[in-house]
Amino acid sequence: MTSNMPLISVIIPVYNVELYVKKAINSILNQTYSNLQIIIIDDCSTDRTYEIVQNISKLDSRVLILRNKINSKIVKTLNYGLEYARGEYIARMDGDDICSADRIEKQYSFLINNPEYSLVGNHVYTINENDEKIGHVKFPTDFFTIKKTIKLTSPVLHIWLAKSEVYKKLKGYREIPGAEDYDFLLRMLSEGFKFINLDSYEYSVRVRNGNTTSTIGFQQRLMSNYVLELFDERKKFNIDRYSEADVIKYLDKYKKHKSNFDKSNEYLRQAFNSKVHKNYIKMLSMIFMTVITSRFQLQYMLKRLIFKIKV
């Protein structure tokens, strides 16, 4: 791929990922599609993350580094990066994950050859702190299945490539922490945009202590339910009640269930670790403890199971 190809802006929010960020960014710098604007936004890291990305930027002019004045969390960080995006397409990447070398080229080629779609993702591997593959996740690769399963879980992982016009139409992400990507896709569907996944594995998601993938927080569970309520209301009544105040009200309504969820999440973490060490009896027992401790975890795991069967 040469520089006469359209510019693609890659948004990479980072926070305290000093052990992984160099490998993550290098997997973008070494893409076969080279006409990239790489926007890295540091959310006030307290480790060496910012220093590392600064050093990387000195070696490649495609890298732009931004830094929040205060720790602002994911939504504000993403929208801050979007303000500087100049590309015809927007790609997402996390600061502790790894892309295949031709991920962006494949996603871009798909969108060019299938203009009815405005966003494309792909299947993913899961890896641990040592880059060891511990699993994989498949996503639907036809739009019919996406529409059929979208109320079960987000049908495209957030490491997609999208036309910039979509971001302009939706005005970026909304302050729905833990489900801002799911909300983005549901709003796309409400606006008539189509999205899909490549039938290939182009990305590795790191599961580690402290990141979203491993903790899968209570707030994320609640917000996934919340954005589905908004989606149904738009479809039935052509209204959208979203506001930051409404989000706070919704979270407050269910906060009494958080302690049980936290207990169940620890069981889930132990289940992940047991799978890595091939202790399947303990893995199953920890999964059982997970689902009987929190109805929100049970709801999530049932939806995921149905999703996997349908996909």
Rank of each mutant, 00 (worst) to 15 (best):
P155V: 10
N122I: 02
Q107D: 10
N114P: 04
S118F: 07
T149F: 12
V156M: 10
Y167E: 00
K147Y: 08
F139C: 03
L161E: 00
I159D: 11
I112A: 13
K148Q: 05
L152T: 11
F139R: 02
I146H: 03
N128P: 02
V166N: 00
K106L: 05
E116T: 09
N128R: 00
I134S: 06
P115D: 10
P140T: 04
F139G: 01
F139Y: 05
Y167L: 06
I159Y: 08
I150D: 08
F144T: 14
A162T: 13
H123A: 02
K163T: 12
F139S: 01
V120H: 01
L111Y: 15
K106C: 04
T145V: 10
V124M: 15
N128Y: 02
D131H: 13
I150E: 04
V156T: 11
N113S: 09
D131E: 15
K106W: 07
P115R: 14
L152H: 11
G121P: 01
E116L: 09
N114H: 13
L152A: 13
V137L: 15
S109E: 13
S154K: 04
W160A: 03
N114A: 10
F110S: 09
V120F: 03
E132M: 11
H158D: 13
S118I: 00
T149E: 10
K106V: 05
D142S: 15
V120P: 01
K138I: 04
E105D: 09
S154N: 09
I127C: 05
Y117C: 12
L119Q: 07
V156P: 04
D131F: 15
N128H: 01
W160L: 01
Y108I: 07
T145F: 07
E132N: 11
P115S: 14
F110I: 06
S109C: 08
S164Y: 04
I134N: 02
E165R: 09
I112H: 12
E129R: 10
E129H: 10
H136E: 13
I159H: 09
E129L: 08
W160Y: 14
I127T: 05
Y117A: 13
T145N: 08
S109T: 13
E132I: 12
V120K: 01
F144W: 14
P140A: 05
T145W: 03
A162E: 12
S109Q: 13
I127Q: 10
I150N: 07
D142A: 15
N114M: 03
Y167W: 06
P115G: 12
I146T: 06
H136N: 03
I146D: 04
I127G: 02
K106H: 06
K163G: 09
N122A: 07
K133L: 15
K138S: 07
F139A: 00
F144S: 13
I134R: 02
Q107R: 12
L161I: 00
S109N: 15
S154W: 03
N128K: 03
F143G: 03
V137Y: 14
T126S: 03
N114E: 08
E129K: 13
N114D: 06
D142M: 14
N113T: 06
N122V: 01
I134K: 08
E129N: 11
Y108T: 06
V124R: 15
V166Y: 00
S118W: 02
I134H: 04
S118Q: 07
A162P: 08
I134P: 01
L111E: 14
G135W: 10
W160E: 08
I146F: 03
N113D: 07
